[in-house]
Amino acid sequence: MSLIHSPTMMLTLTSLVLSTLMALSSTNWILLWGAMELNLLSFIPIMLQSKNNQETEGSVKYFLAQALGSALLLMSSTSLWMSFSSLPNIMPLMLTTAILLKLGSVPCHFWYPSVMASISWTSCLILSTWQKLAPLSILAFLLPQKNMSFIMAMAGINALVGGVMGMNLSQVRTIMAYSSIGHIGWMLSLLAVFKPNASIMYFAVYSALITPLFMSLWYFNIFSTKQMNKIPSNSVLLHLTTVILLLSLGGLPPLTGFMPKLMTIMMLTESMKITVFMLVMGSVMNLFFYLSIVINMMFSTPNLKLLNPVKSKVTGTLTLVTASLSLGLSPLIMM
């Protein structure tokens, strides 16, 4: 996680944080659009930190997808307030689609796994957590309520797409991308029943789970499931915490990752039975490929080296402390 080696990168990170805060506190659509554009331009230098061809390709794909989303956002948001608009019923739907495109959600999810597979673990972590905060908050607090049936349909499809497409993959970053798409479905389902605070809490728990997991994968320089044997070869304790994080992210009870899903099921059971079924099916498929990774870790032969042996104590300690939240938060969330 070496992002602070130069004043330029520090300036870029500061701009990334401030642009998201500007988007969260914007009072009109034009200001919101400007803040998200600044956020886009701030994140691209972070994606290009190693300057290899793969990251350049991922950055271009990310820029094109986000630029299209920004164009749709600007056009649809301004058209909402024009009385002479010829398509008044389509504009709110287009606005929702623009936010879903920026979020990496179905039906505009095709860029997300491709970009995740092309960039470093540091950029993957930022893209999966901080970059989703502004679009998710827009969906939670600003969008018209008439689109909630569309959002509910997209929630169920997100869960199924994330589960089906994540199977039989060998690249861990692509697996994490489809897992993120599946979790977006659970967040959108809470928004569709007018529970924005619950959706934000789900996002916070998800971010707390993937942060130590991505740190471990970055530390051991892991990019495919066959390389997961790097972790048990160096630290049994770190191996166990990584296993707990993977199972918690898959929603295995009674770990922390299961509690937000249980909360969502309890809120949706009475009125949205079909959506609950789709969400549970997607979650079971997610748990299946997480279990595959765990079994591969347990029965593989360690034979590979660390990426940065000098930083072993700091990174290992931070990962262990954060990973302990995966089990320790379960009683708190239940209360």
Rank of each mutant, 00 (worst) to 15 (best):
I200R: 01
V172S: 01
L160D: 00
G182V: 06
A134F: 11
V161S: 00
H183T: 11
S128W: 07
M176Y: 15
S179T: 13
Q227D: 14
V115E: 09
I181S: 07
L143V: 14
L188T: 04
S224F: 02
S123V: 12
L143R: 05
G182D: 09
Q227H: 10
F194Y: 04
M154L: 04
G162S: 14
G156L: 08
A192I: 11
A153R: 02
F194G: 02
L169D: 03
K146C: 10
C124R: 06
M187S: 14
G185S: 01
T129G: 01
T225R: 14
S216A: 15
Y219Q: 07
M154K: 06
I181T: 04
M116N: 15
L139G: 03
H109Q: 13
S123F: 05
M187F: 05
A177N: 08
A117I: 08
I181C: 08
Y206M: 14
M176H: 10
A192V: 11
T174Y: 03
V172T: 12
V161T: 02
Q145V: 15
S179N: 12
A159V: 04
H109T: 11
V172L: 11
I138D: 00
L136W: 02
A198G: 02
L213C: 08
M201C: 12
S179L: 11
I184V: 15
W186H: 13
M152T: 13
